[in-house]
Simulated scan of single mutants.
Amino acid sequence: MLSLILLATIAPRGALTLVPIVTLISLPDVARISRAAALEIAGRPALEAMRLQGESRWRITVGYVGRSMLRTLAADLGTRLTGALYLVAAASFLGIGVSPDAADWAVMVDRNRGGMFLQPWAVVVPALLIVALSVGLNLTFDHALRRKAHP
Rank of each mutant, 00 (worst) to 15 (best):
M1K: 01
S3V: 03
L6P: 09
L6A: 14
A8I: 07
A8D: 05
I10T: 14
I10F: 12
P12Y: 13
R13S: 13
G14M: 04
A15F: 12
A15H: 09
L16A: 10
T17F: 11
L18Q: 10
V19W: 07
I21G: 06
V22P: 01
T23H: 00
L24E: 10
I25D: 06
S26A: 10
S26Q: 14
L27M: 07
L27Q: 01
V30R: 08
A31D: 00
A31F: 06
I33W: 05
A36M: 00
A37R: 09
A38P: 03
A38Q: 07
L39M: 13
E40Q: 14
E40P: 03
A42G: 13
A42I: 09
G43K: 11
P45I: 14
A46I: 10
E48N: 12
E48A: 15
A49C: 06
M50D: 01
M50K: 05
Q53V: 04
S56A: 13
R57M: 09
R57K: 13
W58H: 07
T61F: 09
V62G: 11
V62P: 10
Y64L: 15
G66M: 15
R67V: 11
R67P: 02
M69T: 03
L70M: 04
L70W: 09
L70Y: 03
R71F: 06
L73K: 14
A74W: 06
A75F: 14
D76S: 12
D76L: 09
L77G: 13
L77Q: 05
L81A: 09
A84D: 00
L87C: 01
L87V: 00
V88D: 07
A91F: 01
S92M: 01
S92R: 02
L94M: 02
L94E: 00
L94V: 00
V98H: 00
S99K: 07
A103P: 02
D104C: 03
W105P: 02
V107N: 04
V107L: 02
M108R: 02
V109L: 01
V109W: 00
D110G: 08
R111C: 00
N112G: 10
N112H: 13
N112F: 14
R113S: 05
R113G: 05
G115A: 08
F117G: 02
L118N: 10
P120G: 15
P120N: 15
W121K: 08
V123I: 06
V123F: 12
V124N: 05
L128I: 12
I130R: 08
I130M: 10
V131P: 08
A132L: 15
S134D: 03
L137C: 15
L137K: 02
F141L: 11
D142N: 03
D142R: 03
H143A: 07
L145Q: 04
R147G: 04
R147N: 14
K148Q: 04
